[in-house]
């Protein structure tokens, strides 16, 4: 676990598959304030590539980190604007 940022909120999308992890991450980010960090907990292996792609193609978000555990994939996204 990185100590470089504080998690503002956690979004649980375990069980959900494409496109829901990305779609729900976007909706959750919309509800947060600038500077907030969203932790996304997923079980969809495709979420590693999808959330990375979404974050680099979307204004106002920055992917801070991704962690691959035992069947659990965690993503940390900061809202930058």
């Amino acid at each position: 676990m990185s100590a470089e940022f504080d998690i503002t909120e956690t979004l649980d999308v375990t069980g959900a598959s494409c496109p829901m992890p990305v779609v729900k991450t976007k909706s959750a980010i919309d509800d947060l304030a600038e500077g907030a960090v969203l932790e996304v907990v997923a079980t969809d292996p495709g979420s590693m590539s999808d959330i990375d792609g979404w974050a680099s193609g979307t204004d106002g978000v920055e992917l801070l980190d991704q962690e691959e555990g035992d069947d659990v994939y965690k993503h940390y996204v900061r809202k930058t604007e």
Partner: peptide, 11 residues
């Protein structure tokens, strides 16, 4: 539907 919702997530 998958592409539409994903594109909406991209803005």
């Amino acid at each position: 539907l998958i592409l539409a919702s994903t594109a909406a997530a991209f803005g």
